[in-house]
Amino acid sequence: MTHASENVSVPDPILVAKRENRVWKKFRTHRSAMVGGGLALFFVVVALFAPILPIDDPAATDWMAVRKAPSLAHPFGTDEIGRDVLSRMIWGAQASLLAGVVSVAIAIGLGVPLGILAGYFSGWVDAVISRCTEALLAAPFLVLAIALAAFLGPSLTNAMIAIGISTTPIFIRLTRGQVLSVKAEDYVESARAVGLPTFKILRRYIFPNVLPPVLVQGTLSVATAIIAEASLSFLGLGQQAPDPSWGQMLNIAKNYLHQAPWMAMWPGIAIFLVVLGFNLLGDGLRDALDPREK
């Protein structure tokens, strides 16, 4: 017997390559996606290179320079115990981006397999997974994340777990819907008809088709997760002192609005820019991957 997969009417590799080329070309010429990508990349580079950048120690206090306005020595000013705001911002980028990426990775890692199972196997598997998804979606995202972070204990790791779990239902629902439409395609039917093992069908034909929308949603979810981490840190449920994070910096800054408004300004601008970057990138990816968009 020849390999069953050889008899399956798979999508033409030349067509697939052409489509990939078209998507890449569309993405490259999408101006706002490029701006978004540039913004996101800038923050990623800053976060990665924080340890080697020529900046002050983010935890070093200077009682002679408490709440100093921006100057040459401290371009973003200093905080309530004389720490350099710029270096805390740069190190804070690590916490924000790490939280954004790790929590979305948790959500994808849990959500995509569960969504594939629900969509492909239908029946009781689908019923159980879908009901659980609906239940989790019923609790508002932030309330769920706060409750989870509160019970797990305040820390950056627990905040990432809380945000990841709260984001999971979105990926389950998205993947399930995608699988339902892909599994009705001729090539999947043929693969099943020739007796290809289920795991192989899922890996070869279902998973690659699920990936593009997951990629788009993943990028947009990184933006949401960064805001969520900042919100949890703002409430004291994320990154703990003395390690810096943008949300925690804002939490402290709100007490010094009269005396040191710059303390509140920079972290907010940074959150806004990085979130805008990921939103633009996600929108651009969606447009590039949408076959209806010309």
Binding site: S231, L250, K254, A264, P267, G268, F272, V275, L280
Partner: peptide
Amino acid sequence: ALSGLSIPNFWLGIMLILLISV
């Protein structure tokens, strides 16, 4: 609209307090 979706609302609140109230 995209900016509205990207601004963390707690920061917007702090900035409005700073400008309008303080």
